[in-house]
Design a protein around this nucleic acid. Structure first.
Lengths: 197, 197
DNA sequence: GCGATTATATGATGATCATCATATCAACGA
DNA sequence: TCGTTGATATGATGATCATCATATAATCGC
């Protein structure tokens, strides 16, 4: 068939969407090329017309996740001043909804322990995504006139990522909720974001 | 052969040691039964005399890692008062040495994003290990007369785990060091552990 | 020293998977 | 309307892996 000029691009996009979901939910190793293609409504054969290898797919899919995440960040915080925006982002990040949406949430937490085992290219894309998030949060902290915005932003991201990952592991629902609540509380206190402070 | 009465137990221990290292370094999916047995100086055939399945090995190996970690915790903090002990543990956890020792370091950080994908049994063992660490740290914070030892301990563990995981992903050595340093600094400040405060 | 016992070894088996060679098939230009 | 082309499909191939059946070998009780 001779499809319209950007049919291939759209297909690639669909494959990336499918891969991005599956990789976060099942892990890069457990996701097969054939399953991703099927999820995108295709068979496995055409795969290599879009990507040179599975590694390349994983790298591209992780880049895709970070783009989504960036958009979500903007959506969650736009039009808000630094203080309200930061508060909203922490609220979102440590929500039960985010915890329960492994396949669509923040790639940093979903893949933190997988990444050291992937290729250098993949790590590069991921690390850049982390740096971007740190930079966005550092800017907010700077606007809040915090003493060490850069260092505090790194520390904040570490706690967000760690808390989400741990909440996802705890099988006991109450305890899992408590992990999220504890970090939310401590972070709000730390950055002076309590309900009306 | 009729080996001495606890030869089998010792062998099992060797297999667990090998598995514990490989699983942290390469991930539970990338570690094969044959490779673990070879690492322990055996061939793959005898494996099922020790474990009913690979899943069972993974569960046992993770339990093994937490035992080691518990011993390490005691070693790092024994004889120290709560304040010095807490400081020492944070120092150890966020050290470059710990970052670079993925195969032998804290299982929580090494496997955080793998765990949600493993079996319920495995998650149970891991979650219990996390709870134990939180409890030990909460006790220290209680001795320090912190206002909310439980909540602060959860938050502390989240930040430790997140920072270590992120430091391991960052390919740029300086930036990776900065991630560790930022969390160390912020945690010391938060818990009043600065050099002499 | 001999036969039972027990730990480990050898060598399938079937499943899954990445990769690739080749086939099909529909639309566009001629 | 026909041949070319670009996108996807079908169907290997070889590798890796968990699992298991069976064989070997070394020591202990006798």
């Amino acid at each position: 068939m001779r499809y319209d000029s950007d049919h291939k691009r759209k297909t690639r996009e669909r494959v990336l969407d499918a891969a991005a979901g599956a990789i976060r939910a099942a892990g890069p190793e457990r996701v097969g090329v054939a399953a991703v293609m099927a999820e995108a409504g295709l068979t496995h054969g055409g795969f290599y017309a879009h990507f040179a290898s599975k590694d390349e797919l994983v790298t591209a899919a992780i880049g895709h996740m970070f783009e989504e995440a960036r958009e979500r960040f903007v959506r969650e915080t736009q039009g808000l001043d630094a203080r309200t925006g930061l508060r909203a982002y922490i609220e979102f990040y440590l929500s039960k909804k985010h915890r329960d949406a492994r396949g669509s949430g923040c790639p940093i937490a979903a893949l933190s322990s997988d990444l050291p085992r992937l290729t250098d290219e993949t790590r590069g894309v991921y690390a850049e995504g982390v740096r971007h998030l740190v930079a966005r949060l550092a800017k907010m902290l700077e606007e809040l006139e915090r003493p060490e915005p850069e260092s505090e932003a790194r520390s904040l991201v570490a706690e967000l990522v760690g808390a989400l990952a741990l909440a996802r592991v705890e099988p006991d629902a109450k305890r899992s909720d408590a992990i999220l609540a504890a970090s939310k509380r401590q972070l709000q206190r730390r950055f002076g974001l309590a309900s009306r402070a």
